[in-house]
Simulated scan of single mutants.
Amino acid sequence: MSSFGSTLLVTGPEAFLAQRAVARTRAAALKERPEADVNEITAAELEDTMLSEVVGGSLFSSDIVAVIDDVGACPPGVVDQLVAVAKNPGDELCLILVHHGGNKGKGLIDKLKKAKVPTEPVAAFKAWELPKFVAEEAKRNKIRISQDAAGELVSAVGNDLRALASAVAQLASDSDGGEIDAGLIKRYFAGRAEVTSFAVADAVLAGNANVAMERLRWALSTGAAPVLVTSAMAGAFRGMGKYIDAQGSRMNSNDLARQLGLPPWKMKDYARTSRLWGPGSVAGAIQLIAVGDAEVKGAATDPAFALERMVLGVLALARP
């Protein structure tokens, strides 16, 4: 099927996936007709006769790839013209429309959908979906990755899809055995402040005082901001509280993770360490973490000492 004589509406808040969809469509069109002109513009600029200039041919080429970004900002007087072009693009036009999601420009989007313009949604990923995205990226890079390793990578890199995709590509290029494992990820990201902060929280959840204190001192010595430690601790114990509240349900691990808004791989950690914690101790831990957070943000003269006192206080709440 030709890329020309077609329109694609890319809609949703995930900018990285939107950019990837635009790049893929544009590349396919240029592969088909390398001489085509590429016109890129934001919809807010489509005043007066600008739309016809963007989608029309030039002296040098009659074939056009037109990319119109942020169509939610399209001027009201141009909306019907844009819908008409999108509904019936000429044989020499490949039209790509990008909508950033939300209610902005909803009237235009409704008209485009009513006109049955092909649509590619790019919804934001929820936390529990990120390891699946990592696995799909690994497949794109022709390499294997286990669910646990995908979870490790999310912990190491964070929730940004662009950063995750870049990390997978880098790990794939440096992997010898055709697989990205947890060991490779830990070697790559061991020095990141965010990772060392999560490592402290994991040790506290496991009730391991010696490891927790060792990791805390290492995190601070490698430049981790104290607020990253309190943030990681708060996230870990909020997750534990959710897990304990839902323990009586009969859902499987994946469904439970989805309901709690937690990554499935994290459920294993909570299942393993939940015997150490009850509702009361989790509530007490969250109170201590809140105090520690206030102290490292200025209430204490020695943030490192405040963090050690917080960690030891939380560990004292764990069941033997």
Rank of each mutant, 00 (worst) to 15 (best):
L112T: 02
I244V: 06
L171H: 04
D245L: 15
R144Y: 07
K31P: 04
T119C: 13
V22R: 12
H100L: 09
A290C: 09
L220N: 06
P226T: 09
L171P: 08
A201P: 14
K106C: 01
K132I: 00
P226R: 08
K139R: 15
D174A: 08
V195Q: 11
A36Y: 01
G102V: 06
A73Y: 04
Q81F: 12
A28D: 12
T11W: 14
Y188A: 02
A318E: 01
D70L: 06
R275I: 04
N210R: 15
S281E: 10
D293G: 06
R238S: 04
L93H: 03
M310N: 08
G241K: 11
A73L: 11
C94M: 06
A224S: 12
A316N: 06
A15V: 13
A86E: 05
L153K: 07
L220T: 04
D160W: 07
D202K: 08
Q259E: 13
E120R: 15
S221D: 12
G191M: 00
S231M: 01
A18G: 06
A169S: 15
K116P: 07
S146V: 00
A28H: 06
V65N: 05
L59T: 00
D37R: 10
G223C: 05
L205R: 07
D70F: 05
Q259G: 01
E179H: 04
S146L: 00
A165K: 03
A15C: 10
V296H: 00
L8C: 11
L93V: 06
K268W: 14
D293S: 13
L276K: 14
A294K: 13
V54Y: 11
L288Y: 05
L112S: 00
R272W: 04
V134N: 05
A123L: 11
K31H: 14
A123V: 10
D174Q: 10
D176E: 02
L262S: 00
G207L: 01
K139S: 08
G72Q: 06
V67Q: 11
A294D: 13
D69P: 07
K104V: 09
D176R: 04
L307V: 01
A299S: 15
A236F: 13
A123N: 08
D269Y: 04
A206E: 01
S166P: 02
I289W: 08
D110A: 12
V168K: 02
N208D: 15
R162G: 10
A86D: 10
K113Q: 03
I109G: 00
A149F: 02
V55W: 10
W128Q: 08
A285C: 09
V200A: 14
A43I: 09
R24M: 12
F189V: 03
A283Y: 12
G248T: 08
A86I: 01
A165I: 03
